[in-house]
C-alpha cells in the first residue's frame, strides 16, 4: 500500500498559511511584544520545514526557487549595512533612528531603522535554517 498523504497535504496548506501569517505578526510585533527578527525568522523557517516535510524538496524548490545560502548572506549584509549606514551620518556604528510619522492610511506610525535590522536578522535566520536542513536532506 502506497502512502497517501492527502490529509496531511490539505492540512499543511492551511497550517503553513497560518504559520507564515503568524510569523509576520511575530516579526512586526517584535518591537513591542514578544517576537522579533529571530523568532519571526525561525518560525518562517519552521513553516518551510513543514512544507519540506509534507511535500518533498523538488516540489518545494520548484515553487520557491531561492538559494537560501545567499538569503542568509544577504540578511547579514542588510543588518550590517543598516549599522554601517550611520557611518555616513557621522553617528556611531549601529545607531538606530526611530521616529513617529503621520502616514496617510496608518495614522501615527512609528518607523525605526531597527526594523530594517530585524529584516536582516530574519532573513539570515531563515536562510541558515533552511540551508542546513536542505543540505542534510540532500546528502545521500
Amino acid at each position: 500500500m502506497k502512502p497517501n498523504d492527502v490529509i496531511l497535504h490539505s492540512v499543511t496548506k492551511v497550517a503553513v498559511f497560518i504559520i507564515l501569517t503568524f510569523s509576520i505578526y511575530l516579526f512586526f510585533g517584535g518591537h513591542h511584544n514578544p517576537g522579533g527578527g529571530f523568532i519571526g525568522g525561525l518560525s518562517v523557517a519552521s513553516g518551510l520545514v513543514l512544507l519540506y516535510l509534507t511535500f518533498d524538496i523538488e516540489t518545494v524548490r520548484r515553487n520557491i526557487p531561492v538559494d537560501f545560502k545567499k538569503v542568509a548572506a544577504f540578511g547579514v549584509l542588510i543588518a550590517i549595512f543598516t549599522g554601517a549606514s550611520s557611518l555616513f551620518f557621522d553617528k556611531p556604528f549601529l545607531n538606530q533612528a526611530f521616529g513617529y510619522f503621520n502616514l496617510p492610511i496608518f495614522g501615527k506610525t512609528e518607523l525605526a531603522t531597527a526594523v530594517l535590522f530585524d529584516v536582516g536578522v530574519a532573513l539570515a535566520v531563515i536562510g541558515t535554517a533552511v540551508t542546513i536542513i536542505l543540505s542534510i536532506s540532500e546528502d545521500g
Binding site: 527578527g37 538606530q96 535590522f117
Partner: peptide, 26 residues
C-alpha cells in the same frame, strides 16, 4: 522606541551582539 525591552536590547542596545550572532548562524 520599543516596548519590548528584550527586543530593544537585541536590536538596539546590544545590536552588535545580534549582528555577529546572525553571522555565526550564517
Amino acid at each position: 522606541g520599543a516596548k519590548n525591552i528584550v527586543n530593544a536590547i537585541l536590536v538596539d542596545f546590544r545590536g552588535l551582539d545580534t549582528m555577529l550572532e546572525i553571522l555565526v548562524l550564517c
